[in-house]
Structures are given as C-alpha cells and as structure tokens.
Design a protein around this nucleic acid. Structure first.
Lengths: 240, 240
DNA sequence: TTTCCTTAAATCGTACCCGATTTAAGGACG
DNA sequence: CGTCCTTAAATCGGGTACGATTTAAGGAAA
C-alpha cells in the first residue's frame, strides 16, 4: 500500500472546495481505485484506512460516503465499505449512458475549442501514445488514467460543471468495469481513435467527431467480456 | 415545520439502502427543498436540523454532505450548509444538460413501454392535470413535484439506474432553478406537452417524442428570467 | 469428522465533547 | 455619530467512546 507514502501530495487549491481533510482521503482513494491499485471487492475498513491516513474514522466515513455516491465503493449496512464490484448489468448501463452523453459532450465542447485547446488535447494524446508504447504495470495504470483524462478534458471544454461531474463518474466507473471485464491486453482505449476525434474537431466536423466518439465507446465495450456467467453465484465466489 | 411531526413515517424497505438514520433526514430535506418548502439560501444549521429530527449532528452532517453532493445544498467551510442558490450560469448548465440527456432518456425508455407502462404514464398525466386546475399553495407544490415525477418516470423506464440518478439530480436542481428564476405563474411544465410526448410514444414515433422533449425543455427554460442582473450582489441581497 | 450452537473479536452506527473559526455585539475612540 | 477594535456567543470540524451488529472461532453433540 503506497497510500501511506503519500505525504505532501499537496492539497493545495482547496479554495472553494470542501472539508479539507476528507477531501484528501477521498481523492487518494479514488485514484487508487481508478488506477486499479485497489481491486474491486477489496474491503475498506474505516479503522484501517483511518490508520493509514492518521485520521479518525469520522473523516474516513465522510470520504467513503462520498465515494459511495460516486459509485466507486459500495457500503453495506453494518458490514462496511468495499471497492465497488459492478455487475454485468451495471457495466452495460454505464456504457449505454456514455453512448448517450459523450456525443453531446463533443458537441458542447466543440464551440470552445480554439488553437490553445487543440494544442492541449494534442499534448495529452502524445503523452498517452507514449505510455502505450511502454511496458510494465505502472505504465499500464498511467495509460488507463491518461485515456480517461482525454474524455474528461473534453468534458472540461464543454464548460458545463454538471456535465463534467457526470462524466467524472462515468469515466471512473468505466475504469472499474474494464478492470473487471476487460480481456484484451490491448489498451483500454485502443488504437488512435482519440486522435481521429481530435482531427475531426480540428477541421470543424463536429458531426463526425460525435459519431467517432460513439464508435469509440462501442469499441471499448466490445473489448469487454460481458457474457453472463450462468454460474454467477458459485463461480464469482471462487474468483475472488 | 411539519418535519418534526414525522414520527412513524416508516423507514421500511431500507433493505439494500444506506445507513438508515441519515437516509431519512436526507430524503425529508430533499423533499422539502424540491417542493420549495425551504427557500434557496435558507441556512440549515446542523444543530437545528438535528433537534428537529431528534438526532445528533453526526447524522445531520452525513445527510447534508449527501445533499451537497446532489447539488441541493451548498456547504461553506466553517460557515454551514445552505439550501443551494444556483447561479444563472448553473441554471443554464442544468438545462443544457437536460437538453442533452432527456431525448436520450426518451429513446432509452421507448423499447420498455408496453400497455401497462403507458397506462401508468397516463395516470400520472391525469393526476398532474388535476393539480393544475386546483388553487392554493399546496396544490402548486404538488404540481411541481408531479411535473418532475413525469420526467423521472421516463427515466425509470429506461431501466438504467445511472441515467435515473443523473435525472434525479437534474430534476431536483431544476426545481430549485424554477423557484429562483421562474416568473410566469403558469405551471412549471406548461400546457400538455407531457401528453404529446406520451402520444408520440404510444404510436411508436420515438423520434418525434425525443424532439418534443427537447422543445418541452426549451419551453421550461424560456419561462425563466435568466437575464443577468448586473446589480447581482446588491439586489440579490435585498431580495432575500 | 461434520454440523450446530455458543462465545469472543472485530467493525459499524451514532451520541457526545472539545478546540477552532466565524459572526454578532458592545464600547472606545476619532 | 460613525468607524474600528475587543470580546462573547454560536457554529462548525474532527476525535473519542460506547452500544449494536456482524463475523469468526471453538467446542459439544451426532
């Protein structure tokens, strides 16, 4: 658990934000979950987490509740909190929602994309591609995050805070789903579909960009194994 | 405050739900906010609320944090929680997001609408219309809720829990926005646009239904006064 | 040895408490 | 008479404590 070794990660810029303390815990835990350092189903004991962060259960509870609302952890009454373990059905719903929302995100973002924004997107793509070529676990995790960050960058450009929050949740939960049901060793967001989307945006072809986004999401979902294991109860228990 | 007089409202069916206690507080507060019994900007003191529910501040804090995450209350560090007071900009974002999502909700719901579901929708519309014809504050509040419930019923029919949650938040916040910026005494969801949407759905014309939904949202937003008051700071202070 | 029951450990739910911060009040000074 | 400063009240942030619930362990009976 490298969580303990995260001392001065800087909680700067907590200007308009929330209650300082739990914020840090929440963010750290979320990163750990999204980057798959914490496997789905892992128990997040309030006392344990509190010890890791050197805080009381009070703050941990607040953080866990927030993460629960984001769908990243599931709290079971009198049993504790666990890293979420989305069902096949939830996985489908997540991607259905993304297919519904993300084309709109692209359309909403398009008008706000100028030279500077385009450059920033390109920079992200370059970093992403570089990670794809690297080997090793940490590179893989970084790639997952980078891939999601692209989608979130687009959401940012929509200048719509609510949309951005929705996307935040969808991307985070997608990461969990991919961790659970992803099969191909291929990068989560394959090929260079991101590039093509940016290309379309650059030449002002918003319709195509939106269409490409839908296809892109289709491809991500297609890379998953969402077949229902009939022996769910039995087999699932054995797998964990 | 009829809040106190809510003793055995039954917290039944807390099967898969959350932490019993704060859940009840959260729901009660949310209803009060959505139905405009609590005006935007109203301070929600932890001690006061706790006294009303006969619980400690601990539970109240949890409830307020949850509502904060839903955007219904805003908590300011070291100052307390207040019923959210969405800015003009937020209001626009909320409706922009609804325009983006709700047509998709209609499309997602359509395949699941059979005879029974249609009847249920019609039943809701009838109840809504009946409220429209009544006079008085309580009828007005009930109408607001009923109007939102229609949109939520559609979200339910999409059989997509995530989408449903997003809609939950959007509808709740819309209610706040209408409370703040609504001008016409006309019902929040005017005329019988809801009926037309259902009609389109009944004859299987999903495209039209989706289009009608967008127009419907446009109309709701058009009924608002979203002009920026240049004297925001001064005037807003006087209005409350 | 397997099953069931009893008992102990661990963990959660929630009340209570204290230090820190904000807000309001009251006076002194200009 | 209005501004600024000091001081007290109210309120929040976060920690600790205790009862309740769950889970695991150990032993008795079949």
């Amino acid at each position: 658990m490298s969580l303990t070794t995260t001392p001065p990660l800087a909680d700067m810029a907590t200007d308009t934000a929330a209650d300082t303390g739990s914020q840090h815990i929440r963010d750290t835990l979320r990163d750990a979950i999204v980057e798959r350092r914490l496997a789905p189903g892992t128990k997040l004991s309030e006392s344990d987490v509190g010890e890791l962060f050197n805080v009381s259960r009070t703050l941990v509870r607040a953080a866990l509740q927030a993460l629960s609302y984001e769908g990243l952890v599931s709290v079971e009454k009198n049993r504790g909190a666990f890293v979420a373990h989305p069902s096949i059905d939830e996985a489908r719903q997540i991607f259905a929602t993304r297919r519904l929302i993300e084309p709109g995100v692209v359309r909403a973002a398009a008008p706000h994309i100028g030279k500077a924004e385009l450059a920033e997107l390109r920079r992200m793509l370059a970093a992403e591609r570089q990670l794809t070529e690297q080997r090793g676990h940490s590179a893989r995790r970084a790639e997952i995050k980078a891939s999601g960050d692209f989608h979130l960058a687009l959401a940012d450009l929509s200048r719509n805070a609510i949309l951005r929050r929705f996307m935040d949740e969808l991307i985070a939960r997608s990461s969990l789903v991919i961790a659970l049901y992803g099969q191909s060793t291929v990068s989560s967001c394959g090929h260079n579909e991101h590039d093509e989307i940016v290309n379309a945006l650059e030449r002002g072809d918003v319709d195509t960009a939106a269409k490409l986004m839908v296809h892109h999401i289709d491809h991500i979902e297609a890379d998953l194994d969402l077949r229902v294991h009939k022996s769910t109860d039995l087999k699932a228990a054995l797998e964990l």
